[in-house]
Simulated assay, not measured.
Amino acid sequence: MTVRIGVIGTGMIGRDHTRRIQQVLAGAQVVALSDYSIDAARAVQADLAPDATVYETGEALIGAADVDAVLVCSTGSTHEAYVLAAIAAGKPCFCEKPLATTAQGAKNIVDAEAAHGTRLVQVGFMRRYDAGYRMLKQVVDSQIGTPLMVHAAHRNPAVPEQYVTPMAIHDTMIHEIDVLRWLLDDDYVSAQVVFPRVSSKSHSKLRDPQIVLLETAKGVRIDVEIFVNCTYGYDIQCQVVGEEGLANLPEPMAITKRLGAELRNDIMTDWKARFVDSYDVELADFIAAAARGTASGPSAWDGYVAAITSDACVTAQESEGQIIPITLPARPALYN
């Protein structure tokens, strides 16, 4: 069976996912495209999917009879409405993060999917599909004893001028929020944010770097450094300390050189290159599940928990060091 996919949002990630489906992966074909800029959708059609139909609205695309499954790659504020429409149509839906821009919006999706009775939504938390994180999880689950602490870092070489303090949570640390919860099989109970000295590379609306401190239900303590103007490269670090040992996320493959009286290796600067393989694996997983009329991988519930946790972290940013409790509602049986 070839899964016929409609892509909503043909910007950078939508274009790349279209390329991935058309040129890299098996089992699917892009048959429909939509974007708020009709010219952008037509450009992707011309370059990558000449047989696809271009729709003026995402809703029209979702309702098309020849669309089996939907990719939502549009701006975050539109995600909730498109995902709810896909659920109402009974069509599997892959939604790039965030699932919704508010926790209530994510809850609306969870409620709709639970009422439908079948999982239809996969959220684009691609780190769960990264080979390094999967290796790390295998070791954490079986070799280092009970996890006690996690030390993590998310560093970008630079961010645009419009990037402001809350975006360090909603746009950047959202990946750590999801992947660490998955890595530990645990939920968060509190958040605190502390601010070191501000980097001179920052600006008046961005406090950078910052450190987020999380506590889990099992008592694991987590610290995550977010430094989005580190200048030297795109650098993702994670170390889990257990009762019997510790485990580090492996570095991306790079050639080590002895050159000019120095021992050196390159550090990536582009997040797309760092996780390119995981995007392939996550979409292959979605296609396989969509062929069965369902979804797998990170769920709407995971997206909802990430939204609740993100909101708590932003409150912690604004509260100047206070510890903010994180309370989760009962998880619907669909997600157990």
Rank of each mutant, 00 (worst) to 15 (best):
Q23C: 09
S296M: 00
A306P: 01
P252C: 04
Y129N: 05
V83R: 01
A112F: 04
G219R: 07
L136T: 09
I226R: 00
I326M: 03
M173T: 10
L48S: 10
A100V: 04
P332S: 05
A284C: 01
D280R: 09
A41H: 03
S296K: 00
G11T: 04
M167K: 09
R181G: 10
G245D: 05
A217T: 13
V30T: 02
Y36H: 11
D51P: 08
A254W: 10
S77P: 03
M167E: 09
P166R: 00
V140E: 02
L33S: 02
D270V: 12
V228T: 07
G145A: 02
R181S: 10
Y55L: 01
Y234Q: 04
T102D: 10
R20L: 10
R221H: 12
M149L: 15
G132K: 01
I21A: 02
D171W: 05
V54T: 06
A60S: 12
I324Y: 08
D16V: 08
Q104M: 08
D277P: 07
R128L: 13
K97A: 01
K218R: 14
D130F: 00
V110K: 12
I169E: 01
V314M: 01
P50W: 06
W301I: 02
D51M: 14
A106D: 08
A64W: 03
N248L: 15
Q122D: 03
D39W: 10
R19K: 14
G321P: 04
E56Y: 12
I255R: 12
D16L: 14
A69R: 01
V194P: 05
L283P: 00
A307D: 04
S202N: 04
A254K: 12
G219E: 07
Q317F: 02
Q192C: 15
V179G: 00
L213I: 13
G6K: 02
A103R: 12
I211N: 10
E59D: 11
L84A: 02
I38H: 14
I169L: 06
D185S: 14
H170K: 15
V198S: 13
L99M: 09
Q317W: 00
P298A: 03
G63M: 07
L259I: 14
R20M: 10
S299L: 02
E320D: 13
I255G: 15
Q143E: 08
P157T: 07
S199H: 04
A103M: 11
L334K: 13
E225F: 11
D47Y: 11
V198I: 13
N156A: 15
Q45N: 09
Q237V: 08
A307G: 06
A330R: 13
D280G: 15
I62P: 00
T172A: 14
R128C: 12
G242I: 03
L84I: 03
Y188M: 08
A43M: 07
R119Y: 08
D285M: 11
V212T: 11
S74D: 04
R134G: 06
S310E: 10
R15F: 09
I326Y: 07
H203S: 09
S202V: 11
I8E: 03
P298I: 00
